[in-house]
Computed example of a mutant assay.
Amino acid sequence: MKRVSYAVFGGPDVLRLIDAQEPHAGPGQIRVAVHAAGVNPVDWRLREGQVLGAHPLTLPSGVGLDAAGVVDEVGAGVTDVQAGDRVFGEGSDTYAEFAVLSAWALMPDGLTFEEAAGYPSVMETAVRVLGEVGVRTGQTLLVSGASGGVGSAVLQLARERGIVVIGTAGAANQDYLRDLGARATTYGEGWVERVREIGQVDAALDLAGSGVIRELIELTGDARRVVSIADLTAPALGVRFSGTAGSVPNALAEAASLIARGALHIPVEKAYSLADAAAAHSDSQAGHTRGRRVIVVRPLNLRAG
Rank of each mutant, 00 (worst) to 15 (best):
G10Y: 04
I229K: 05
P235K: 08
R31V: 14
G69I: 09
L302E: 15
D93A: 15
A36G: 09
G238E: 06
G110F: 01
L216A: 01
A204Q: 09
P267W: 01
G149V: 03
R298A: 14
A67M: 12
G110L: 00
Q139C: 08
L15K: 07
W191M: 07
A263D: 08
A25P: 13
R290Q: 05
E114P: 00
L65K: 09
A208Q: 13
L141H: 10
T137I: 04
A37N: 10
G148S: 05
L207P: 03
G134I: 01
A83I: 15
V212E: 14
L59S: 12
V227H: 00
S282Q: 15
A126D: 02
Q21F: 06
D43R: 04
V192S: 14
L258R: 06
W44Q: 02
P235T: 10
T244D: 06
G138R: 05
P23K: 04
V192R: 14
Q285S: 10
D43N: 11
I213D: 09
G89A: 06
Y6M: 09
L15N: 11
Q82V: 14
G287C: 10
G91L: 04
V212G: 12
A146R: 04
S257N: 05
A171R: 05
G211Q: 09
I229S: 03
G238N: 07
R16H: 09
T94Q: 08
A37H: 09
F9I: 13
Y272I: 08
A184G: 08
Q21M: 13
S257V: 04
R183Q: 15
A76M: 07
L106P: 05
T58K: 15
L57C: 10
T186Y: 00
L219R: 08
R159D: 04
V248S: 08
R261H: 14
A184T: 04
L130F: 11
L57S: 13
G167Q: 07
P249D: 11
L219P: 01
H35P: 11
S247W: 10
A172P: 00
P235N: 04
A263Q: 14
N173C: 02
E132V: 06
S5W: 13
G11V: 00
G162E: 10
G145R: 05
R45F: 12
G26S: 03
G64S: 13
R3S: 15
G110S: 03
P56T: 11
Q156Y: 06
I18N: 14
L302I: 06
R3F: 02
A182M: 00
G75R: 12
W191P: 06
M107E: 06
A275T: 10
Q156F: 07
I266L: 11
D43T: 08
Q156N: 01
S102L: 03
A260L: 08
P267M: 05
D202M: 01
R290M: 00
A286N: 14
R240A: 11
V195D: 12
V201C: 05
L180W: 00
G131T: 03
Q285A: 15
E97P: 09
V71W: 10
D276F: 01
G190S: 10
R225W: 00
L101T: 13
D85Q: 06
V4Y: 11
V135I: 12
G77D: 15
E22L: 07
E124H: 03
A256F: 10
E73P: 07
G38E: 08
S210F: 02
A36Y: 03
G190H: 07
S228Q: 11
A103L: 06
D206E: 04
A251E: 13
